Amino acid sequence: MKFLYTLMAVVILFTGCKNEGKEAENNSSMEKNPYGEEKNVLEADSAAIDIHPISHATAVIDWGDHSFYIDPVGGAEAFEGQEKPDFILITDIHGDHMSVETLEGMDLDGVHIIAPQAVVDEMPEELKDIFRALENGATTRVLDFYIEAIPMYNLPEDEDSRHPKGRGNGYIVERNGQRLYIAGDTEDIPEMRELENIEIALIPMNMPYTMTVEDAADGVLAFAPDKVIPFHFRGQDGFADVEKFKKLVNEGNKDIEVELLEWYPNSEE
């Protein structure tokens, strides 16, 4: 009988240790994947983002099997041979960003146009219906792209500013983890410095309209995109020194790729 009690005790102890081992194993598994099979993780988008400069601040973006335009100006003929856009982003009311004539010459059937309210207010009535007004901080979706309006403005803030806060939009365009930042006409503002996880950034640098090369480099180093592309760099005194910008950025962070594209094909620079 004594032998039987001893045998039962050993069996109970073994079973308890085995169950504790399973529980520990299950807990370890849950820590690695607490949401099990139901966790929804978006795979990073492997589609290439190809930026085709048209002029100054105007570009065509081919992103995988979709295309969109930034600030289309220069007449519809400037976009001959380009893919029809799925949507258009307009940043501000100035003539180097907004052109009613250019829009009227395009096939806009089925095209979404996102812009600040100040731009919508400048449109003729026959175009307003295809516009979607977006204020600073707001987000909208077109197809599988999420578009967030980011403030763009001059410093210091005052009522005589060429670009007062709240009138125009910069944009973050995001698709499955890839984030493209289009700064618009801005200076080295806190909202830009606080950005995170930007793959490509389009940054202006022309005085007195946006910021100096030095300020642009400081701002880029603060939020450290994977790649930065200078654009909108023709000012009152000619072209900003984008080579100096590249040097300053790479001296501060060698991991940031600086790509120089041809934004002024008809210039003698």
Rank of each mutant, 00 (worst) to 15 (best):
E199V: 02
H232A: 11
K39G: 06
G110N: 03
M8E: 09
M106T: 05
A133M: 03
N19L: 13
F3C: 00
E135S: 14
E125G: 01
I150G: 03
M30A: 15
T58C: 07
I229F: 10
N197R: 13
E174Y: 03
N206M: 07
V213A: 03
A47K: 04
P204C: 13
G137L: 05
G36H: 03
E126K: 15
H94N: 10
K84H: 07
T186I: 11
A138E: 15
D218K: 15
F68W: 13
E38V: 05
G238T: 08
G168R: 07
P204E: 13
L103V: 09
K2C: 00
I150L: 11
V249F: 05
H94M: 08
E269I: 12
I203P: 00
W263Y: 10
D96K: 02
V249T: 06
E80M: 04
G170S: 10
E191T: 05
N206Y: 01
L221K: 03
S29W: 14
F68A: 02
G110R: 00
P116A: 04
K18Y: 15
A133V: 04
A224S: 04
D188L: 05
V220L: 04
A138Y: 05
P72N: 11
F145N: 02
M8H: 07
P190W: 12
E43G: 14
D241E: 12
N169F: 11
G81N: 03
T140I: 05
G184D: 05
R179L: 10
M207W: 00
G21V: 08
E148R: 15
I51V: 14
T210R: 00
S28C: 12
R193G: 11
F239H: 12
A118C: 08
E174D: 05
N197Q: 11
M211F: 07
L261Q: 12
G166M: 02
L103H: 02
D188A: 09
I198V: 15
E191I: 01
E122S: 08
T102F: 04
L103F: 08
E43H: 11
E199Q: 07
K246R: 15
N169M: 08
D50N: 15
R132G: 04
D158Y: 07
A57C: 08
M1D: 06
D237E: 15
H56D: 09
I147M: 12
I90A: 01
N19E: 13
S28H: 15
I200T: 02
E187T: 04
M30P: 00
K39E: 10
T186S: 15
A222P: 01
E31R: 15
R132M: 06
N253I: 01
G64C: 09
E191A: 11
E251T: 09
V60F: 02
G238D: 07
N154T: 12
A138R: 08
P265S: 13
F231C: 08
E126F: 09
P151T: 14
M207T: 08
Q82M: 11
Y35S: 00
S267M: 01
C17W: 13
K22G: 00
R193N: 15
I93P: 00
A44L: 15
S55H: 12
V173G: 00
L143G: 06
A59C: 12
